[in-house]
């Protein structure tokens, strides 16, 4: 994607910066301006836990063109140790190693690139612990 679209998300992609509600304590990722639990607008910056547990996952065999050289790849939703839920690929594994309940840790990887000449899009992925 063009850098102009990537740039606003750098704090999230690189450093897992979300928000936490000062009233009800809910953790949001990506960050929000209004709490989706209690409606409060008093939120503070919060950095997500780096470890969690797989709640569900899939193995993508038919990807968009951008990911066609990466198939099959695993995408999971994990519940992080602070309660936030995070969607990311599980890398450095084969699909049969992934199961609901397995522990994961966040790593920093190349997610995609804007063709051969455009920007490289870095971000978070999971690895199995």
């Amino acid at each position: 994607m063009p850098i102009q679209r990537f740039y606003p998300h750098i704090p999230q992609r690189y450093r897992l910066e979300g928000t936490k509600c000062k009233k009800c304590g809910k953790v949001h990722f990506p960050p929000r301006q209004v709490c989706n639990s209690c409606g409060s607008k008093e939120l503070e910056p919060y950095r997500l836990a780096e470890e969690g547990e797989i709640i569900t996952y899939t193995v993508v065999y038919t990807p968009p063109d951008d990911f066609k050289t990466k198939k099959p790849y695993v995408v999971a939703i994990a519940k992080m140790d602070d309660g936030a839920k995070l969607t990311a690929q599980v890398t450095d594994c084969t699909p049969d190693e992934v199961e609901i309940g397995k522990r994961v840790r966040v790593v920093f990887r190349k997610i995609n690139a804007e063709g051969k000449s455009g920007i490289i899009e870095y971000g978070y992925k999971f690895v199995l612990i």
Partner: peptide, 13 residues
């Protein structure tokens, strides 16, 4: 290197 790794991700780790 994995398909999602390069000098930047290796340096990061």
């Amino acid at each position: 290197p994995g398909q999602d790794e390069d000098t930047i991700t290796i340096a990061y780790m």
